[in-house]
């Protein structure tokens, strides 16, 4: 988390993006250090997903500068598994070489789906689908992991299991992670630092010094949540002005 010498793996400088007349990003600055886990929260339309797509290289119609490790993986809210490929093939999609199947099997084992490689995506539950998507993201040993509301469609219990799994995996691999979410608790349980976005800019920044594994019900996390809520509600007032 706090290494003696912080090396930025993601840097975004004065990012602007507009759709027609509407400015979605109005000058975003962001820096994420190696091994750090940063969450970006904000309401729908705050520009979170647009920012992530720009960082992922999926949108180049922006102004500003991005510096990011080329070894990056993206995980989308809809897992985007190919329905016509078996789970194992989905995981190793695009991997080359003879070790691909073994690497895929390892990744599936890491997400707890060691015996589901032969299944079709259709046969999986929502949580399993996201586990496969996570395995596909991690199998390439990325330096940077970009997550776009990956657990938004899951039920509360499954989501909390996924939080534990994700925290464990990115912690073990020391993966630099940027998570976009609208779930305050998700951000607080997972991130080292939480950024709030509103009106196309980063409005607040809150370090989360709580020890891991975290429980969202401890007094420390509750206090941080209260602070985040305050910062979000002041945004509302600023926004309504």
């Amino acid at each position: 988390m706090t290494s003696s010498r912080a090396v930025p793996m993601i840097t975004a400088t004065r990012i602007r993006r507009s759709y027609g007349d509407r400015a979605v990003l109005a000058g975003v600055d962001l820096s994420v250090d190696r091994g750090e886990f940063v969450a970006v929260i904000g309401r729908s339309g705050a520009g979170k997903t647009t920012l992530l797509r720009i960082l992922a290289g999926l949108d180049d119609e922006f102004l500003g500068e991005v510096a990011i490790s080329p070894r990056l993986s993206v995980m989308f809210q809809d897992a985007r598994l190919l329905p016509w490929q078996r789970v194992a093939t989905n995981v190793t999609l695009g991997l080359r070489g003879g070790e691909a199947p073994a690497a895929g099997a390892r990744a599936l084992a890491e997400v707890g789906l060691a015996n589901r490689g032969r299944a079709w995506p259709r046969e999986l539950s929502g949580g399993e689908v996201q586990r496969v998507a996570l395995a596909r993201a991690l199998v390439r040993s990325p330096e940077v992991l970009l997550l776009d509301e990956p657990f938004g469609a899951l039920d509360a219990l499954t989501r909390s299991q996924m939080h534990t799994l994700l925290a464990d995996l990115v912690g073990r691999h020391a993966t630099t992670t940027l998570l976009v979410t609208h779930d305050l608790n998700e951000a607080l349980v997972l991130a080292d630092r939480v950024l709030t976005m509103n009106g196309g800019v980063v409005t607040h920044e809150l370090p989360v010094p709580a020890p891991r594994p975290r429980d969202r019900d401890t007094a420390q996390v509750a206090a941080l949540r209260a602070r985040l809520l305050t910062s979000l509600s002041t945004q509302v007032q600023e926004g309504s002005r």
Partner: peptide, 19 residues
């Protein structure tokens, strides 16, 4: 949306066609 997936996984053209 699979286009985007293919780009994020840096799939080659042949892999996109085949898979």
């Amino acid at each position: 949306s699979y286009d985007e997936l293919a780009r994020s996984l840096q799939l080659g053209r042949w892999t996109v066609v085949r898979r």
